[in-house]
Simulated assay, not measured.
Amino acid sequence: MPMDQLAAMATFVRAVDAGSLSAAARSLPSSLTSVSRQISALEQHFGTRLLVRTTRQLALTDDGRILYERAKSILGEIREIEEALAGSRREPTGRLRVSSPSLMGRMLIAPLLGDFLATFPSLTVELLLVDRHVDLIEEDIHLVLRVGRIADSQLVARKLAEVQMIHCASPDYLARRGEPQVPSDLAQHDCLIFSDAPGIATWRFGPDAKTGSRIRISGRLWVNSLDALATAAEAGAGIIRVPSWQVERQLAEGRLRRLLRAHEPAPAPLHALYQPSRLGSAKTRAFIDFLVERWRRSDPLGRSSL
C-alpha cells in the first residue's frame, strides 16, 4: 500500500475521531485544504462516498464505516510492526488501552497499576471500566477482560482465572424471612439484581450448564452497580448474586451469609481477549503476564484463580 494512501487513511480516521475536518487539521497539525484533499483522494480511489459533510459535523456513510473500522485495524497493525522493529519486544513502550468490567477493574486491576507502571516505565495505560461488550477495533482497545463464554471467534483468548458466583444475604434479612434451602425457594424472597434493564432475570444453578436449572427471578431492586447491590444486601434488602471475591470481607466479618452452596453454578472463565494482529505485541503480552503472576501470588479471586 503506497505511503500516501496510508497517510490519507490516517487522516480519514483522525477526521472521524475528531468530528470535523478542521479539528483533524488542528490535531495533526495540517491545513484544512490538505485534510480535505486527502479524504477526497480516498473517495476517488475507492469510488465511493465516505463522509457526509455538514456545517457542524461529519457523518459516515455505510462504506465509510467499513473503511473506518478496517483502517483503524490496519494502522494499529502498522504501529505494532513499528514497535517490534524499534526493539519493543525487549522493552514495551507506548500506549496500552485496556477494558475491564467496572468492579473488577476498580478492585483487582487498579491496585496493581502502580507496580505495573513502575516495572515498565516506557508504557502508559488507559483503563476503561465499562460493564458492556466493547468493540476492540472501533474503540481502539488493545486488551479486554471478559467473564463468561467467549463468542468473539476472531479474537485471541487467554484464560486468566475463574469467577465463582455466589448468593448472599444479611443475617438480619435471613432472621426475618428465613433461609432458602433450594433455588425454587427464591420465589418467596426479595432478590436484588444486577442489571440496567428491569424486568425478569434468570439465575442458573448447578455445576453443569446443560443439566442445571434456571430459575426466573422477579427482583424488587435492580441496580447497575455490584457495589450498590452489596451495600443494599448488607442493609437487609434481600438476596444478591455476586462474584465471591467481591464480598470476601463481608462474609468473613459476618455481615453477609453465603446461601445455596450445594446448588452454585460452575465457575465462569475470565479471559483476556485481543486481536490476532496483536498476538506478538510486547505491551499486551507484558500486561497479561503481569496479571497472571500477581493473581497467582495473591489469589484475589479465590482458589479458582489459575
Rank of each mutant, 00 (worst) to 15 (best):
V13L: 05
S40D: 08
R79P: 06
R158W: 15
P101R: 07
T33C: 14
V130G: 04
L108A: 03
L67A: 10
A86H: 06
S153V: 12
S36N: 10
I240M: 00
G236M: 05
L155R: 13
P183S: 07
M107G: 10
A71K: 10
H167S: 14
S31W: 08
A86Y: 04
C168S: 03
S30C: 09
L117G: 03
S170P: 09
W295P: 10
W295Q: 11
V223S: 05
Q38F: 14
V242K: 00
R296K: 10
I193D: 01
L155I: 08
V125L: 13
Q154D: 13
I39N: 07
V242I: 04
T55P: 09
A71D: 06
L229K: 12
D190C: 02
P180E: 00
V163R: 00
S27G: 02
Q250I: 15
L129D: 04
P2R: 15
C191I: 14
L259R: 00
T55A: 15
R158Y: 14
A110V: 04
F194G: 07
S277I: 13
R294I: 14
F290E: 06
A161K: 05
S298F: 07
S298Y: 06
A209Y: 03
A10W: 09
P92F: 04
S73D: 12
L155K: 13
A235Q: 11
E162I: 08
T119F: 09
H45E: 15
V147Q: 00
P101H: 04
L270A: 08
